Amino acid sequence: MAMGYTLMTEQRGPKGLVADAVGAERAGFDFAVSSDHYFPWLEEQGHAPYAWSVLGAVAASTERIGLMTYVTCPIMRYHPAVVAQKAATLSLLADGRFLLGLGSGENLNEHVVGQGWPPVNVRHEMFGEAVTIIRALLDGTDVNFVGDHFRVDSARLYDLPESRVPIGVAVSGAQSIGLFAADADAMIAVQPERDLVGRFDAATSKRVPKIGQQPICWDPDKDEAVRRAHEQFRWFAGGWKVNAELPGPSGFAAATQFVRPEDVAASISCGPDTKQHVEALRPWAEAGFSHVALVQIGGETQPEFLDYAREELLPALRGEYGDAPEHWLDAP
């Protein structure tokens, strides 16, 4: 598996995120993914800078590490024509190291534009139209589009990379795979489910990367790691179907008020044990994922974590799951 690092905008300010990306490249991570949020999940996380400005600075400050959004929602807060322009520009800044990760979003981040939060079937309709628009623009065509949810009038991108920006699509089940897998350049998922990988492979004629994300909370003190994981990541227990619907940090706080520290520690690897952190990625490997991005919980801990990753964690992960691919988006 290729090993990634998460620039979690919900727990770190913009300058810190750029410094962390530079540190992740030096540590030897293959790629870095960035969340794209308007709010943190919980107030305790405390941040939500604009991901695209951060990624522009990251692209200019790094040389090798792959970059991607994990994930951008192109259905409300951003119009798809604007997402295509952002992706093309970022790819140029990153010399082709960028993958545009797309998903149908969460109420948490999209409600700010005041249009209401549509049901999941409508979101999938909107997402399908958005991907069609984005792909056409990234192909360099002049786009006029009239759909049920979006209109585009004579759009064209004038600054495009030599190779089209690849698009990864977040999927969670048979419906989203059936709608979006055939044209995707990568599969993105938040759960290590073998069935998702099998369904995705059956729905497409090409071999593509399967990209997941795994939170851990490294700390020399296990009790502190558990405390911090509970404080900042107890929202993770809700599952995607719940997390997509709640409107703000107060909603996540209320929904997780009875989640205990031991509940979080049962699902997130916490503490100094490298073997435990390595094993946390086992379900992804067994499910057939080719790429996993680690989330280190706790914004202020990132510099120390990156030192640990360079010295201990990444060598252990390589030893267990294999060396990095020649190109970060190569699929096995």
Results as ranks from 00 to 15, higher is better:
Val33Trp: 14
Ser34Thr: 13
Asp36His: 10
Asp36Thr: 13
His37Met: 06
His37Asp: 05
His37Arg: 11
Phe39Thr: 09
Phe39Pro: 05
Phe39Glu: 13
Phe39Ile: 03
Phe39Trp: 15
Pro40Asn: 07
Pro40Arg: 04
Trp41Leu: 04
Leu42Thr: 07
Leu42Val: 06
Leu42Phe: 02
Glu43Thr: 11
Glu43Gln: 13
Glu44Ile: 05
Gln45Phe: 12
Gln45Leu: 12
Gln45Trp: 13
Ala48Asp: 02
Ala48Ile: 03
Pro49Cys: 09
Pro49Phe: 09
Pro49Lys: 11
Tyr50Phe: 15
Tyr50Cys: 04
Ala51Thr: 15
Ala51Ile: 06
Trp52Pro: 04
Trp52Thr: 02
Val54Ile: 15
Leu55Thr: 08
Leu55Asp: 06
Leu55Asn: 08
Gly56Lys: 08
Ala57Ile: 09
Ala57Asn: 06
Val58Met: 10
Val58Ser: 07
Val58Arg: 09
Ala59Trp: 00
Ala59Ser: 01
Ala59Gln: 00
Ala59Phe: 00
Ala60Gln: 08
Ala60Asn: 06
Ala60Arg: 01
Ser61Glu: 13
Ser61Leu: 10
Thr62Ala: 10
Thr62Val: 15
Thr62Ile: 14
Glu63Ser: 15
Glu63Met: 12
Glu63Trp: 09
Arg64Pro: 01
Arg64Val: 05
Ile65His: 00
Ile65Asp: 05
Ile65Thr: 09
Gly66Val: 08
Gly66Tyr: 13
Leu67Trp: 05
Leu67Thr: 02
Leu67Met: 04
Met68Arg: 01
Met68Val: 05
Thr69Pro: 11
Tyr70Met: 14
Val71Ser: 03
Val71Pro: 07
Thr72Glu: 05
Thr72Asn: 11
Cys73Gln: 04
Cys73Met: 08
Pro74Ser: 03
Pro74Gln: 01
Ile75Tyr: 00
Ile75Asp: 00
Ile75Glu: 01
Met76Lys: 09
Arg77Met: 10
Tyr78Leu: 08
Tyr78Asp: 13
Tyr78Val: 03
Pro80Ile: 02
Pro80Tyr: 10
Ala81Asp: 02
Ala81Asn: 01
Ala81Cys: 00
Val82Thr: 12
Val82Trp: 00
Val82Tyr: 04
Val82Asp: 04
Val82Phe: 01
Val83Ile: 14
Val83Lys: 03
Val83Gln: 12
Gln85Gly: 15
Gln85Cys: 08
Lys86Ala: 14
Lys86Met: 15
Ala87Thr: 07
Ala87Trp: 00
Ala87Val: 10
Ala87Tyr: 00
